[in-house]
Structure formats: C-alpha cells, structure tokens
Design a protein around this nucleic acid. Sequence first.
RNA 1: GCGCCCGUAGCUCAGCCGGAUAGAGCGCCGGACUACGAAUCCGUAGGUCGGGGGUUCGAAUCCCUCCGGGCGCGCCA
Length: 554
Amino acid sequence: MRTRIKQVIEDKFAMLAEQGLLPASDVADSHIISVPKHEQHGDYASNFCLVMASSLKAPPRKIAELLKPELEGEGLFTKVDVAGPGFLNFFLSSAFWQQNLLEIRAQGSGYGSSDEGRGMKVLVEFVSANPTGPLHVGHGRGAAVGDSLCRVLRMAGYDVSSEYYVNDVGNQMQTLGRSVFLRYQEYFGQEIDFPKECYQGDYIRDIARRIAEEQGDKFLDGEPASHLDFFIHEAVSEIFGGIKKDLEDFRVNFDNWFSERTLHESGLVEQTIQELMEAGKIYEKEGALWFRTSDYGDEKDRVVKRSNGVLTYFAADIAYHRNKFERGFQELVDIWGADHHGYVPRVKAAVAAMGFDPDALNVLLLQLVNLIEAGQVKAMTTRGGEFVTLREVMDDVGTDAARFIFLTRRCDSHLDFDLDLARSQSQENPVYYVQYAHARLASVFRTAKEAGVEMKEPEEINLSLLDSPEEIKLMKLLASFPELVAKSASALEPHRISYYLTELAGLLHKYYTTHRFIGDDNSLTQARLLLADVIKTVLKNGLNLLGVNAPEKM
RNA sequence: GCGCCCGUAGCUCAGCCGGAUAGAGCGCCGGACUACGAAUCCGUAGGUCGGGGGUUCGAAUCCCUCCGGGCGCGCCA
C-alpha cells in the first residue's frame, strides 16, 4: 500500500510539473510514506511536500494544496488532508481494511510473506560455539536471534541458509583432550596437576569418568601423547552431541554444520594465503606472515601464520569467508558475541582484500546476557567453570519463555534475563500475554462449535459490520504485518516481531472485554469470527517467526 | 590511551537511514467476572530522551564534544 501511495503522489507531481503548475525536479530519496502516530493524521502520511519544498522553491503547504485535489480524484482515498507544516494525510475507507481480511484469510500460514528479499541468497552463521564445553546462556541468545532471523528472512523472500561453524582444530582441541586425560588419571587416583588453562568445568570429569568406566585403565600406561587423539575425539563427540541436542530442544535447526578442519584439509587456507601473497597483500616480517588489513581500514596488520609455522584462527576465517562468497551467497550475516567486536574490521578488511564487498558482510554483535535471580546478577564466567548453561535455563523456564525473552531486546542492548520473571506462570511473563491471546481465540472457536455455530465461507460474510473503532484499529494492525516482517528482515532485527505481537495481543485483549464474538446476531457473529480467525492466524504466524508455540489451550 | 556499543518514566526496555502531542510492560494507587478463559481489561500518577553545542522548516533520532556504564585492544580462539 505504501509503495502504491508513493507512486500515486509522484505521478501526480509529474503531471503538475508537466502542466507548468510546479517546477520539474527529481524526487528526493527522503520522500517516505509513514503510518502516523495519531489517528487524526490519517492512515498514511507523506512528507513529500516538506522534502521537496526547497528544490521547488515553494512553501510545503502550497505544494500540498496543489496535489490534494489530484490525489482525491484518484478514488483510492476517502479523504486527503493537508496538515501541520505540509504533510499529506491519507484516509482509507473501512471497506478497504475489511476487504483485507479476506486477503489474509486466503493466505493463511503464508500471510506475512513478501518479495522484499527478491530471492537473494543469504547465509546466516550463528552460535558457532567451540565444541569444548556446553552452550551457555549467551549462546542461547545467539541461537534465538539467529534462528528467528532466518525465519524472518525466509518469510520476507530471501533464500536463506543457516550455518554453524565448528572450530574443530587448533590448540583448544589439544587442551580439551589434555583436560579430559588429566581427569581420567585423577579418576584412577593419580596425583595430577590441573593447569589453569585447562577446562575447569565438571563436564570434563563426567566425560573422563565415562571413558574410564567403558575403557578401564588401559590409557594409564605408555606415553600420554599417543592417547590424546582418542581423548579429543571422545570429548568432542560427546560435547558436540550435547550441543546438538540442546539446539534441537531449543528449536534451532541448522542447514549446515561447517567444519573448520575441512578448510585446512581441502587446502583452501594455504591456497588463499598463497594467492594473497602473490597479490602483495600478505608479507613476511620477523618470520611470520602478515595480512595488510590496515590498507582496508583495520588498525594494524594481522598475523595469519605465526613464526612457528602455525596458522592463526584468522587465517582460517579468511578462507571461510571466501568460501561463503564462493558458494554464491550475496549477503552474509555473522552473529557474534560483542566481546569479538574488535575482530570485525579485520574480517571486513580481508573480505575487501579478496575482492568481495565488505558491506555484504553484516556482523551482528550480541551484547552480554545477565541472569538475574532474586534481584541479583548471577555471576557468569566461562573460565572458572562456573557458568549457567542454556540447558539449565531451558529446563528451568521452558523454551518458549526463553526464546521470547531473548527476542525482546535489540542485539546491541544488554539483556537482563530475569529468571524469576521467566519462570513465573503468571501475568508478569510477557510470553504468556501473547500466547494467551492465541489460546483465548482458540477457546472462542471451541465455544462456537459447541453452540453449533459454523463459520460460513468468507465471501458470504457481511464484513461491513466490522466498523467499530477497535475493529478498524485491529484490521489496520493486521494489515501492516507483511511490512513489519519485511522491515524486520532488511534491518536484521527480529525483536520487532515480538513487539508487534505484544501490541496485537493487547488490542485483542482489549477488544475481547468490550465486544463479544458470539452473540444472537448471526451475521455479526460471522463477521467477528472471521476477524478472530484472522487475528489468530497472524498471532500464530508471528509466534512461529520467533520459534515460540501458539497453544490452543494453556 | 585508542576503538566499538549503551545512556529514554522508580525498574526493564521499545521508538533511532530526521517528522506532528515521546510509548509499552513491570511496580504504586483505585476499579471491573451470574455471558465466548480475570494468565485479562479500565483508570490515576510518573519525563531537562545523560549534559552542552551544531546541522535543519523540524532532532530522542544526524554531526561534534564532555560525563557515566559495558566490552575489546595477542604471532589466543
């Protein structure tokens, strides 16, 4: 609708310019159609006259007055107002909104879709936690945001793939294997010196105990180094199995699990370094290889191969991002913890140096999650081994509440996750507010069925009965859902969905207390049931974008 | 010291590629079930949008600066 109004204005302007009533001029980019905050400002508003005033050398209101009759003659609006400093306010008839209900109903679970993304291939990479320990709450936020973003992008017409990058090589693997081996020795009563850099969590002991129980003490003999691969393999597969299970229960699915190891094994890392050296973008200094990232906006050059011959994590990441582009993705979204923000410029620099568009790489930085319990921040450190896992939170508050809460904040805002609130099965918990709206409507249909009321075909329903201010307001909000999804997608901001749903649920609850869906007047009942049906659909579609259930009963 | 993010009601936060009178939830206080679910609704109170400058017809929104908080500044990942 917005694009249609915009087009009409620009057409009418061109016509007036042709007639010599206004000077010809290019239309400013800042010309937008918005939905005004106040009802008296109409259903849509245009700032056209304001943004064009200076290039047309005419007062905004005067331009508006010239356009007004032309726009009214279009037949699209019941009224066009010139308001304030020169806004054009457009009023649509209630029939317009009523007809829209049929459209929503026809689209059903597909309502909200658009071709905003035009089939653009997008890769969203998230979580990507090292398989050295269980997922913690911070990863949970990444999982919720990433997964929801994928759903939103898909609905907005993007061709989306989701991916988890598995760091399955490097020092940390050695450290992990060593940590488990030491605990294994400890299990058999040997004196061990457990270094600080080893993984401290109890889960390491659990893995060691399992190995000890299954394999006995046979690894105590001989050179520990020769057993290390076995311990690494056992630890990784157990930990990774746990991660996958956690994500599955959190309703997060990945299209692809990308192993860092394959980048090395395929030779892509070495090949990329070689090519960049030939292009003069990597040079040698003090025995190490350095990438000229400072030529592309980074603070300083970065090492890709250490003087001891070992590749850095960065080296693999360069190849990984190259690989992403070479797989044909046009937009990349990386979701990282905010503590990695210093890493962004160097990866963008690498992308640019390889000849790809650095703006095609979108890095979302997720700020910290603080768990609050009894009004106190629960300490959450990864190093000390004392951390709250995603599993604990999921088991504690449930997947629905956890996901919803993770999606009620902007990415770059710190998140205080109040456990008591999330736990409470009561009014304070925001997720229930929305779910309850859905369940309430489901209940209406159950009641209707019991009363023997069947919904007619939409075409037979007299929609003009839906004309109260509350109904109009609801219908307008319902109509804006596809735009909201599209905007949420292009801005990479899934949290907008949860705000929309809270607003829609609020309107429904309010409506519910002042209007009855089922009454003596059959045609009114029919019209309101259609409205109920459509609201229910939109709530469900929206909750689905968040990965939250839409229950029929609670 | 340098860089990134944040600062909006008592609390937690929306709104931020400029737009009209700045919103919500929680909390406080007061109301509403003999009709579809009260996990709900209605009403009251609550604001120098961190401070200051600038750009503009117009700034919570953009720019500069200062103050406060968080996080980073490895030949770690």
